[in-house]
């Protein structure tokens, strides 16, 4: 798994640094799809939509409460992609207050 991840990252970086701003692009959609993001997981718990990522990253940036780590903590507009899903469990309320 780790090897695959590294490989993907290398492929991704290589193509990003040679990113053509104004050029004919290649047509290998399958290989593009391989390193493209898929559908972001829905949010299975109640949350506060703070629009600055702070509420979400408190756990998803640290692994607190067993939360899956965000692979892209620099993206802070979380609910732009992650839709509120079926509520399966209630997360523990954060002890640390986030500023709204």
């Amino acid at each position: 798994m780790n090897v695959a991840v590294c490989l993907l990252a290398v492929v991704a970086c290589a193509s990003f640094f040679s990113f053509p701003v104004q050029a004919e692009e290649r047509e290998d959609y399958e290989s593009d799809a391989r390193y493209a993001e898929g559908q972001p997981p829905a949010i299975p718990h109640p949350f506060r939509d703070t629009a600055d990522g702070k509420y979400c990253l408190r756990c998803h940036g640290t692994g607190l409460n067993g939360a899956p780590l965000s692979p892209h903590p620099v993206r802070i507009t979380c609910t732009e992609c992650h839709v509120k899903g079926e509520i399966k469990k209630h997360t523990r309320e954060n002890k640390i207050k986030t500023k709204d």
């Binding site: 993907l8 990252a9 399958e30 799809a33 391989r34 390193y35 898929g38 559908q39 692979p71």
Partner: peptide
């Protein structure tokens, strides 16, 4: 793009296999 690059590493197994199966990709 680099901000999204780390996301490439996040490919969940489901997607990874999906991109290798008998799926035809287009834009």
């Amino acid at each position: 793009a680099a901000a999204g690059a780390s996301a490439a590493a996040s490919l969940r197994p489901k997607d990874a296999s999906a991109s290798e199966g008998d799926i035809r990709w287009g834009k």
